[in-house]
């Protein structure tokens, strides 16, 4: 079996299984821990609290104006590469074909030149993000293996993808195989590291936003 067939065949199957198993395990593992009831008298009704949670889900996407001077640039950098990743993942024709055969739905693609621009941009931003992580005193202190490995594996997928489309670094099929394999690796790593935040971000904002709004506190 050649590399591409292995990567998109058994390796992908295993990776997808590990991904689902890990994600569900991790979420169920904490969601079934104790939930303490709130006995205090709420300031706002449940409906109002939930509306607050919904608002927080959206509004936390960008810092409150009081914070932007200090955090705007850092957050923009983070969002930048996330947006780039989404465009490259969701708007590149071969990726759409991939999702199409997995889930049975497809959507229009963007031209490859646009995708190439975005992936180069994303790669550049990822380098900037890494540079910031190793130079910023707070980030350097907070960072652990998870942070660096998650960065590495994300970047690896981008780099091999770029190499495959640009036909550099070796025969196309080898690089394509590595690209898919690195994606498989990312799937396997996903539930065990910080990549899980993709599942957490909106529920976390919504739940905390709801709880704060229930008290009438700022969110």
């Amino acid at each position: 079996m050649d590399l591409v067939s292995f990567a998109r065949g058994p390796a992908l199957e295993v990776a997808l299984a590990v991904f689902c198993l890990g994600v569900v395990w991790r979420i169920v593992g904490f969601a079934l821990l104790r939930i303490r009831r709130n006995f205090n008298e709420p300031r706002n009704s449940l409906v109002k609290a939930i509306i607050g949670g919904v608002i927080a889900t959206g509004s936390r996407s960008w810092p409150h104006s009081e914070f932007t001077v200090r955090t705007g640039a850092g957050e923009a950098l983070g969002y930048g590469y996330h947006i780039g990743l989404f465009i490259v993942i969701l708007a590149f024709a071969p990726h759409i074909a991939f999702f199409g055969s997995l889930f049975g739905v497809t959507w229009p693609a963007l031209p490859n030149s646009v995708i190439t621009i975005f992936s180069v941009l994303t790669f550049t931003l990822l380098l900037a993000v890494l540079f910031r992580r190793v130079t910023h005193r707070v980030l350097r202190m907070l960072s652990n293996f998870d942070d660096y490995f998650s960065w590495f594996i994300t970047t690896l997928v981008i780099v091999t993808g770029l190499m495959a489309t640009a036909h550099i670094g070796g025969p196309y099929q080898t690089i394509l195989g590595l690209h898919i394999l690195s994606f498989d690796a990312l799937l396997v790593w996903f539930p065990f590291g910080k990549l899980m935040h993709a599942f957490y971000i909106f529920p976390s904002r919504a739940i905390n936003g709801t709880l704060l709004s229930r008290k009438g506190a700022a969110s």
Binding site: L16, A17, C20, L21, V23, V24, V28, G29
Partner: peptide, 16 residues
């Protein structure tokens, strides 16, 4: 996906 999720859920219930 479903099979893996079921095993994951079982493990999750066990660990919780």
């Amino acid at each position: 996906v479903g099979g893996a999720a079921a095993v994951g859920a079982a493990l999750g219930v066990a660990s919780a």
